[in-house]
Structures are given as C-alpha cells and as structure tokens.
C-alpha cells in the first residue's frame, strides 16, 4: 500500500465553544478521491480547514507527506502540495479572471520573482481545463457564481498541487459543469493526484468518489467505498428518514428524497 499523502490522526477542532470535529482520523493516498458527506453542521468544512493548514486542531495531528502540517511545514511548501477550492470568494477589487488564476502560482514564486512563461502556461492550461479561458479578460467581480467557481477551480489547478481539497465543488454549477468538474477531479486522481471533497450530492459522490466518509456531529460514523456507505440504513441514521436508496441503472446506489 502507498504511503498516505495526507493523514489526520484523531483530530479534534473547536472554535470558541464546543468541539466541532472530534477524534477524526483519515488517510488520503495518491489515486484516491475521498468524498466527505454529512448533514449540515456535522463539521465537514471545519475538517477541511484543519486539513488545509487554515485551522490548527485543538488536539491530534495533521501530517502532510509524514510531516506535521502545522509545526513542520511552511505555508508555501504546503501550498505547493495542497490546493484548496473554497465554496466561494468575495472579491471587492476587479482583478481579471486570468490574474486570479495566476495567483495560484504564488507558492512557486520567490518574493522578488515575476511570473515567467512557465507560470503563464500553467495558468492557461488550468483555465482551458476548466473551460474558463474565454473569461480570462473579464473582471472577477462581473462573473456569475458558477463562473467564479470555475475560475477558483482553475486557480487551484494552476497551483499544480498533488492534493486538491474542495468545499462543495459542484454548488452553484449547472449539471453540465457539475459533471465536468468532477471528471476533472477524477482525471487528476487518475494521473496520480488525490482529492478530498465535501459533497452534498450523494449521487455524484457515488459516481465519482473512490471512498466516502460519513460525518455526523463531528465524528466519523462510516468510511468505505460508495457502494458500502450509501445504503439506506446507514444514510437514514446520518441524514434522517426522508430518503430512500434505489439501484442506479448503471449499477451504483441512487439516493432519492422521500416525500412523506
């Protein structure tokens, strides 16, 4: 078995009040697409923040390539290994989309370096892969929510990090781009990368993820391939009774809301 790229060892997190994430352990290896699912307020986003060097855990450790992410890794080298796509970004100043994507090159540049041909090429490829190249000269402030999402995705790709962390990568996107983005993540994983995504859409998780982690009240209540996790009994205990699981025509599970 390959060594874990990213490893969480009984991580607990809290803001000022009670713990939001409690004793979560998780390993992410090259070639894996991990979907984190759970109801609202179950600590998914906090978990992602802890894994992305944004919020030090109250106890436990996060290891990147076997080194402590908070104690032994500086911000730039972490950013070269690990890119984050946030849910959204509010930008008050009218940077052009391409300028935003070029910011993804920051961890690869020294303090006094200017962007080189190599950086612009990385930015262009990232934008072409997310179908945003034609938005390149549009101010980010004028883009729609979905367009902005894809630009942020391109920025993460321009970082050329092996690990991608995403917070609901498909929200704000129409179904075409939902599939496109997830296909992109799948390709990234197939090429030797790793992805961890918080996902609300369980069916997309079923279709693309190699592993699903169920989170409830800050604790992991199940972890395994989608086929094993997305079963009615388990999901009901996590999400409540208003759902049912049927067989997808393609063979996987199909989670449907059940209207009482």
């Amino acid at each position: 078995m390959k060594d874990a790229l990213l490893k969480l060892e009984s991580v607990s997190c809290a803001y000022d009040g009670p713990t939001v994430v409690e004793g979560v352990s998780l390993e992410v290896r090259a070639g894996e697409f991990v979907a984190i699912a759970g109801p609202n307020g179950s600590g998914k986003t906090t978990l992602l923040r802890a894994a992305s060097r944004a919020m030090a855990p109250r106890s436990g450790r996060v290891l990147l390539d076997g080194r402590d992410l908070y104690e032994e890794t500086d911000a730039k080298s972490a950013a070269r290994r690990l890119a984050v796509v946030p849910q959204d970004a509010v930008v008050e100043f009218d940077f052009l989309a391409l300028e935003i994507v070029l910011m993804g090159r920051y961890p690869h540049l020294g303090r006094f370096d200017a962007e080189t041909e190599r950086d612009r090429e990385a930015a262009r490829q990232a934008m072409e892969r997310t179908d945003t190249w034609e938005l390149r000269d549009r101010p980010i402030t004028e883009l729609s929510g979905g367009e902005r999402r894809r630009v942020l995705m391109a920025r993460a790709l321009a970082q050329e990090a092996q690990i991608l962390l995403l917070d609901e990568p498909t929200s704000h996107l129409d179904i075409h781009f939902q599939v496109e983005i997830l296909r992109l993540l799948k390709n990234h994983v197939d090429a030797g990368g790793a992805s961890v995504a918080v996902m609300h859409d369980l069916n997309l998780a079923a279709a693309f993820a190699s592993r699903v982690v169920l989170l409830q009240e800050g604790r992991v209540t199940g972890e395994g391939p989608p086929r094993e996790m997305l079963v009615e009994e388990k999901l009901k205990s996590v999400f409540g009774p208003h759902l049912e699981v049927r067989a997808h025509p393609d063979g996987g599970p199909l989670v449907l809301p059940r209207i009482p």
Partner: peptide, 16 residues
Amino acid sequence: NMFLLGEESARHLGVE
C-alpha cells in the same frame, strides 16, 4: 493581492 481574495484564501495559496 492575495489578501484581496480573503485571509483564508491567502493562507491556502501559501501566504504566511
């Protein structure tokens, strides 16, 4: 420039 995307984004892009 990174700060303009938000503190957390700046952190994720490798800004100390």
